[in-house]
Amino acid sequence: MIRKYNQFVFLENPYIKSSHIILFVFWIYLLQPINAQTRDQKSVYWQLGVGNTYLYDNYLSPLPHTGISVLFSNGNMKPLKWGLPDSAKISFDDVKWFSRCNYSINPVYGQSSTGSTLLYGNIDLRKSILRQIVSDPKYHISTGAFAALSGGGRYSIHNGNNPASLDAMFDLGITVFSDYKFTFWKKSMIVSYQGSMAMVGLAFSPEYAESYYEIFYLSNHKNIIKFTNPINKQHWRQQLSLNIPISGRKSSFRVSYWNEGRISLFNNIRTRVLSNHFSVGYISYFSIL
């Protein structure tokens, strides 16, 4: 029997029913929003999410592992004064460039169909620079580039002699950000989307059946750094968020859906980390222009 894996494995979780999601969204709506972020403000956000992650690493096991995962994310988005006069009075609509910084931590507890356990953890740091290319009173679209550093590893509790494999990578890629302002039941909200895709970079990978003892203890570092491209490595991240301003505060409540994937094939070692998370968060706004 060949088991097919839906990348939206979160939706297969029997403990989460659609009625829970509807009730949660309704509860958020009751938070009485009154305003929304404007383009001149720096925003800082914190998010915590739970979801499901699919893990596969044929260096450790021919079996895929899936399990619950946690996502903590912190970052900011701020307008840049690039190309603008160094003047105190700048119209908000003049701002064309933005930067986004983000770091995220993602631990996973994965289990295979046989009950074997695979632990996974990843830290990702990234900075994006975006230029606004579509501007409308209600919506904006920005595109740009990002640089990311990430590191992590998998640990198989059942493997005695080669229990772990490491991830370490540097990515350069493209990113798209858009937001749409709307009013729902007399309340102003913003829905935003950011999608990122790594294009080139560097990644660590042992050779096909090379032991980590040889790499780290005997210091054989030959062929362990790989140049990456969309053929040998695909790394994407998508985040769809709804920002709901909180009454009387320069802040918003955020609910997000994250979809992230890391697929690589180096030296015949195939790895896949596919995750879906629902997160809640808090955003603070600061005027900086």
């Binding site: 029997m1 895929p64 295979s112 679209i141 595109t143 798209v176 999608g195 895709m197 994407w236 998508q238």
Partner: peptide, 30 residues
Amino acid sequence: RKNYYHMKQTAFLLILIFSFSACHEDVNES
């Protein structure tokens, strides 16, 4: 018109991202 042109470019990038996120192989766990 300008917005429409840029939105087409953006749509291309999005299709690229989604196309990668939609595929991965099955594993025989029988």
